[in-house]
Amino acid sequence: RLHIEVEGTELMKKLVEEAKRRNLNVRAKVENGKWIIEID
């Protein structure tokens, strides 16, 4: 499991799109103003 903290929506969208393209499980949520992304 990969755990990433990202500031900025554009970067988050790119990460999520790339993960979906590779058929990975992606969860994204906002915590303290940062995107928290978990990829399995």
Rank of each mutant, 00 (worst) to 15 (best):
W35F: 07
V16D: 01
I36Y: 07
V30S: 13
K20D: 03
H3Y: 14
A19H: 02
E7Q: 12
E10R: 05
K13Q: 14
T9Y: 15
T9L: 14
H3I: 15
E18W: 15
H3Q: 13
E31S: 10
E10S: 06
I37V: 11
L24Q: 08
E17V: 05
E18P: 00
L2K: 09
L15P: 00
V26M: 03
R21S: 10
G33L: 03
E10N: 08
H3P: 09
T9E: 15
T9G: 10
K14G: 05
R27D: 07
G8I: 13
K20H: 11
L24S: 03
W35A: 03
N32P: 00
K29A: 09
E38S: 08
R21F: 04
K34V: 08
E18L: 14
K29Y: 15
T9P: 09
E17R: 09
E7I: 14
L11H: 11
L11E: 14
L2A: 07
N23L: 05
I36W: 04
E38K: 05
N32F: 02
K14P: 01
G8E: 13
L15T: 03
T9K: 10
I36L: 06
E7T: 12
E17S: 06
E31Y: 03
N25A: 11
W35H: 04
A19D: 00
K14V: 10
G8H: 12
E7P: 07
K14N: 06
L24H: 06
D40V: 12
L2M: 09
M12V: 10
E10W: 03
M12S: 04
R27K: 13
E5L: 10
I4N: 04
N25I: 12
E18Q: 10
R1M: 13
V30A: 11
R21W: 02
L2H: 10
R1A: 11
W35L: 12
E38T: 09
W35P: 02
E17Y: 05
E5K: 08
V30K: 15
V6A: 07
E7W: 14
N25M: 06
N32G: 08
R21M: 11
E38I: 14
H3D: 08
K13W: 05
E17M: 08
R22T: 04
K29M: 11
E18I: 10
G8K: 12
K29G: 06
D40P: 03
R1D: 08
V26D: 01
R27E: 10
E18D: 11
K13D: 05
K14D: 05
N25T: 10
A19W: 04
E17G: 05
A28H: 03
L11Q: 13
D40F: 15
R27Q: 13
N32M: 01
M12A: 11
A28P: 01
V30E: 15
I37F: 01
E17N: 09
A28R: 01
L2W: 09
K14T: 08
A19K: 01
I36G: 01
E5Q: 10
L24G: 04
R1K: 12
E5G: 05
R1Q: 11
L11P: 04
E10H: 08
M12F: 06
H3E: 12
R21K: 13
A28M: 13
V16F: 10
I36F: 04
L11T: 10
R27V: 14
I37Q: 01
W35K: 02
V16G: 02
K13S: 07
H3F: 13
H3N: 11
V6I: 10
N23R: 06
E7N: 11
V30C: 15
I4P: 04
R22S: 07
K14Y: 09
R21G: 07
R1V: 14
T9F: 15
K13A: 09
V6H: 04
N25P: 11
E38F: 09
K13G: 05
E38N: 04
D40M: 11
K34E: 08
G8L: 14
V16R: 02
R22I: 08
V30R: 15
R1F: 14
R1I: 14
G8R: 08
A19F: 12
E38V: 12
R21N: 09
V30F: 15
G33A: 00
V26L: 04
I37H: 00
N25F: 02
N23Q: 06
E38L: 07
N25K: 10
R1L: 13
N25V: 14
I39S: 02
R1S: 12
I37D: 01
I37K: 00
L24P: 02
K20N: 08
W35N: 03
N23A: 03
L2P: 06
N25E: 11
R21I: 09
L24R: 05
R27W: 05
D40H: 07
I39E: 02
I36Q: 03
W35Q: 03
T9Q: 10
V16H: 03
E5I: 15
D40Q: 10
N32V: 00
L15E: 01
R27F: 05
G8Y: 12
E31P: 00
A19I: 10
E31C: 13
R27T: 15
I37N: 02
G33K: 03
L15V: 11
L2I: 14
K29W: 15
I39V: 07
R22F: 04
E5T: 11
I36P: 01
V16S: 03
L2Q: 10
N32I: 01
V6S: 04
R22K: 12
E7L: 14
L15H: 02
K13M: 13
N32T: 01
G33M: 02
L15W: 06
V30D: 05
K29L: 08
I37E: 01
N32K: 05
K20P: 00
V26G: 01
K20Y: 04
R1G: 11
E31H: 09
I39F: 07
I36R: 01
K34S: 07
A19E: 01
K29V: 12
V6W: 07
R1H: 14
K29T: 14
N23E: 06
N23P: 00
I36A: 01
W35Y: 07
D40K: 05
E31M: 08
G33Y: 01
V30M: 15
E5S: 11
L24M: 06
I39W: 07
L2Y: 07
L11Y: 06
L24F: 03
N32E: 08
E10L: 06
L11M: 13
K20G: 05
L11F: 09
V6K: 03
L24Y: 01
V30I: 14
A19Y: 10
E31A: 10
E5P: 05
G8A: 12
G33D: 07
M12K: 02
R21A: 12
E18A: 12
N32L: 03
I37Y: 01
E38D: 11
R21Q: 09
A28Q: 04
M12N: 01
V6P: 04
E10I: 04
N25H: 13
L24N: 03
L15F: 09
G8D: 15
M12E: 02
E18T: 05
A28V: 15
E7Y: 13
D40L: 14
V6R: 02
G33T: 01
V30G: 06
V16W: 09
E17L: 06
I37S: 01
V26K: 00
I39H: 00
G8F: 14
E38H: 07
I4V: 08
G33F: 00
R1E: 09
H3S: 11
E38M: 09
E7K: 09
D40T: 13
I4W: 11
W35G: 02
N25S: 08
A19S: 04
G33I: 00
R21H: 08
A19Q: 02
V6L: 06
E5D: 09
R22L: 14
L24K: 04
N23F: 06
D40R: 05
A28E: 03
N32A: 02
E5Y: 10
N25W: 01
E7G: 09
G33N: 09
K13Y: 05
E5R: 07
V16Q: 03
I39Q: 01
I36E: 06
T9M: 13
A19C: 12
E31Q: 09
E38R: 03
K14F: 10
G8Q: 11
I39K: 00
V16M: 11
L15S: 00
L11A: 14
E10P: 04
K34Y: 10
V30Y: 15
E17Q: 08
E5H: 09
E38A: 04
E10Q: 06
L11W: 08
A19G: 04
L2E: 07
I37M: 01
